[in-house]
């Protein structure tokens, strides 16, 4: 883009073109943000303001009533806490396991490495439907269905997509650095812990945020495993609420806002690392 300013072209045409692009961007941004705004404004509407013709974006009178109604209909605080616990444990599991495996695939030459890497890639294509039923039976046999553990435990053993992403990133860690640390007598775990992991921070942030989002927004696994209302995540709570109250749009949107805000906060905090990590690791 800098080139444009160096070469002096017909500037009037260029200005009009960038104006056009600007208009296009603003239109698209408007369309993309509109459903989000609808969610927020509907959550602040009085029940009588929800069904209006023509539909209005803004409430006639702003009210917090819907949040109270939603909280009355379901223990949102409990669901919120459960979701936080599931998401946090999943992130911990992912951050403990995936970099370890990725490091083995990136920086050690061991027999079987090629095969294991191939299997990691192949399982990325495996539909969860194939393993879903036997896994359910196993968790059922050991008495863990209904608890959050089936949602959390697998993350402590690594997720193929994250292992792949981490591995691509760790390939770029200079071998010399590791060799030098060995010369200094550092143990392999010490090297991993104090050299490789700190270098991998952007990638760690990326997979951490990804995992948080996955766990936070997951619907299928909670639907299968959580049958005890005390352990519901927000996804299931919302699902139940909709099943029972259908078109109570105000409270439903209020609960939706509560569900969305934590994900937004995590994303805004991690955004910088996340997008740069996404750009620099993997996909090449």
């Amino acid at each position: 883009m800098a080139i444009d300013t160096v070469r002096r072209g017909p500037s009037a045409r260029k200005a009009s073109r960038s104006l056009l692009a600007y208009a296009g961007i603003l239109a698209v941004v408007g369309i993309f943000i509109f459903p989000f705004l609808t969610m927020i404004t509907t959550s602040f509407k009085l029940p009588t303001d929800v069904f209006t013709l023509p539909p209005a974006l803004l409430p006639e009178t702003w009210t917090f009533e819907n949040f109270g109604l939603a909280l009355e209909a379901m223990p949102i605080d409990r669901y919120l806490w459960n979701t936080i616990v599931v998401a946090s444990l999943s992130v911990i599991g992912t951050l403990v396991s995936c970099p370890l495996v990725a490091y083995a695939l990136a920086k050690f030459e061991w027999r079987g490495r090629g095969v294991v890497f191939f299997i990691v890639l192949a399982t990325m294509m495996l539909p969860p439907q194939v393993t879903m039923i036997p896994l359910y039976l196993v968790f059922d046999t050991v008495g863990l269905t209904g608890t959050i553990w089936p949602l959390v435990l697998p993350t402590f053993f690594g997720t193929p997509f994250f292992i792949f992403l981490m591995r691509q990133f760790m390939m770029n860690v200079p071998d010399d650095l590791i060799a030098a640390a060995r010369l200094d007598g550092a143990s392999e775990f010490r090297i991993y812990w104090s050299i490789v992991l700190p270098l991998a921070k952007p990638a760690l942030a990326t997979i951490g945020i990804f995992q948080f989002m996955w766990a936070w927004t997951d619907f299928l696994n909670p639907l299968i495993y959580l049958n005890d209302e005390a352990n519901y995540t927000l996804s299931l709570g919302l699902y139940n609420f909709f099943s029972e109250n259908g078109i109570a749009w105000g409270p439903l949107m209020a609960a939706s806002v509560v569900f969305t805000v934590p994900a937004l906060i995590v994303f805004l905090i991690g955004q910088r690392f996340f997008l740069s990590g996404l750009a620099t690791s993997g996909l090449k």
Binding site: L100, Y103, R113, F157
Partner: peptide, 9 residues
């Protein structure tokens, strides 16, 4: 160490 680090997966 390759096997050890890869063992979780």
């Amino acid at each position: 160490y390759g096997l050890l680090f890869a063992s979780p997966w």
